[in-house]
């Protein structure tokens, strides 16, 4: 077993599991019932999926310039994914696109009941 072979096996494992997680994200995106649930599928499994694919690529490339770029891709993904998900989630809730029949409990509804509708709120 040479070091190259070990690196190749590790890279292959990372790439395949990353691809599987992305596939699961795609399936979830099609299958989940409402927009908020779909956001989970769209934003989350691919965080780990992308990190695994980046790690696999880094193991194959073994080139400093490429690896620094891959690190940046990972860092920006971790920093921006929650913000994007939060903005969509907030807009979804205010536009009343949440399937309330699927919620076990909604503690935000009571807290927002007293507020005047703001921009983006759909008034029923």
């Amino acid at each position: 077993m040479t070091a190259d072979l070990v690196a190749d096996i590790l890279a292959g494992t990372c790439l395949i599991s990353g691809a599987l997680l992305s596939l699961a994200a795609g399936v979830g995106l099609l299958r989940f019932p409402d927009l908020l649930s779909r956001m989970h599928a769209a934003t989350k499994p691919q965080v780990l999926g992308l990190l695994l694919i980046l790690a696999g690529t880094a193991l194959r490339l073994q080139n400093t310039i490429d690896i620094t770029t891959l690190v940046l891709v990972g860092v920006f993904q971790l920093a921006t994914a929650p913000v994007a998900a939060h903005m969509v989630g907030r807009a979804v809730y205010r536009a009343r696109q949440v399937r309330t029949d699927l919620l076990v409990v909604d503690e935000l509804a009571g807290d927002r009941a007293g507020e005047a509708p703001g921009p983006g709120d759909r008034v029923v």
Partner: peptide
């Protein structure tokens, strides 16, 4: 938010 299964709504 980064851990799957939970999402910040507000």
């Amino acid at each position: 938010s980064l851990v799957p299964g939970s999402l910040i709504v507000d």
